[in-house]
Design a protein around this nucleic acid. Structure first.
Lengths: 193, 193
DNA sequence: CGCGACCGAATGAACGTTCAATTAGAAAAT
DNA sequence: ATTTTCTAATTGAACGTTCATTCGGTCGCG
């Protein structure tokens, strides 16, 4: 039953995960379908049982990754002050990218590729689900400067990406304290003076 | 004489410029050599007279673009205060990307592609020539927080890119005043309190 | 039996690259 | 001034490879 249900999606997720891993190493077009198939342990034709084309596969992978990331959103029901919510969101997001390097690479490539326009959603709105209202609230409540969140989101997103990449480059070991320190730099920038 | 010298590089730059334009629209691998040739008004084989391969072409394009951008660096001999130097640098950089959308797209794709590792230079050090010492000086003189410039540069670079992309998306018209306002957000973040 | 999952060799188009042939233009020779 | 020579630039058809996609067939389960 559920074993069977899992099996139905088993190969599908194997394909998605393999694609994610391979894209990190070789990029979009450096990873042929044949290699994805081999890495996922399926036949080349099987991929086309689950995805119409390579483009569709990548679009699906974007949604798949986005889904996995949707947990990392600030919950306003927390009793922490807004500043702490922001900091822990920033840190959690950064830690996620550090621990999931392949996701980081994929997202970065996807966002800068022509694929970005194919998706109905707007670009760089990766985390849009819960994040936009969070910032909206920060602006309305006077915690942060009155900037368009369309500008705010990419700037903050950019800083998270930059820090994660910096850590992953091996040039610096980000402890939790150091991450917080960096998040504070951003906070100092956006907070209402 | 110089006409001749110009002619020697004429086709070469035509190829580079065409590549830049096409990559903006179709991405790296969406632009075949044949299309580059047609767009540049040369034969396919001519490209290989100037560049060993497509990879070499893209590497050269990176250097070409980097060269064109190297003018936008803060000159410390200016008598303006450090803060103003930073702001005008940030604004100039952002305006450049707004006016040269194809450069923006190319840089973004290059930085997130596997090509990035091919170049002897370090990633995200696009502006490294004059920028790193500029920030180093800011730290040493106590104008900005004591952050590793390896982190500082990508964060600032990210904010510039984000703003430029935001403008180019057509969702917002960045006046010079508005650009300055945004640069101030970053400044508030990095300045020594 | 029947149906959907799965396989993997076959297909054909697209693409990067090559190369033999052609041209252009400057220098050398007449 | 004209012809010859030589080199570098340029061409575009052809080549070989790679790759996304297809499809006829197999397997396993209800």
């Amino acid at each position: 039953m559920n074993v069977q249900l899992e099996n139905i999606t088993c190969k599908k997720t194997a394909i998605l995960e393999s694609t994610l891993r391979l894209i990190k190493e070789n990029g979009f077009h450096g990873t042929p379908m044949s290699q994805i198939a081999k890495s996922a342990g399926v036949a080349a034709g099987t991929i086309y049982h689950y995805f119409d084309s390579k483009d569709t596969l990548i679009q699906s992978l974007y949604l798949y990754v986005k889904e996995r990331m949707s947990n990392i959103i600030p919950h306003q029901e927390d009793d922490k002050p807004y500043k702490e919510l922001f900091l822990s969101f920033w840190i959690a997001q950064c830690e996620y990218f550090i621990e999931n390097e392949d996701v980081l690479h994929f997202i970065e490539q996807y966002m800068t590729s022509p694929y970005r326009h194919c998706n109905p959603e707007n670009e760089s709105k990766l985390l849009s689900s819960g994040v936009v209202p969070f910032f909206q609230r920060g602006i309305n409540s006077g915690y942060i400067k009155n900037l368009d969140y369309q500008l705010l989101v990419p700037v903050i997103h950019g800083s998270i990406i930059a820090a994660a990449k910096y850590h992953l480059s091996g040039r610096y070991e980000f402890t939790k304290d150091r991450l917080r320190e960096t998040a504070l730099v951003i906070w100092d920038g956006i907070k209402h003076r």
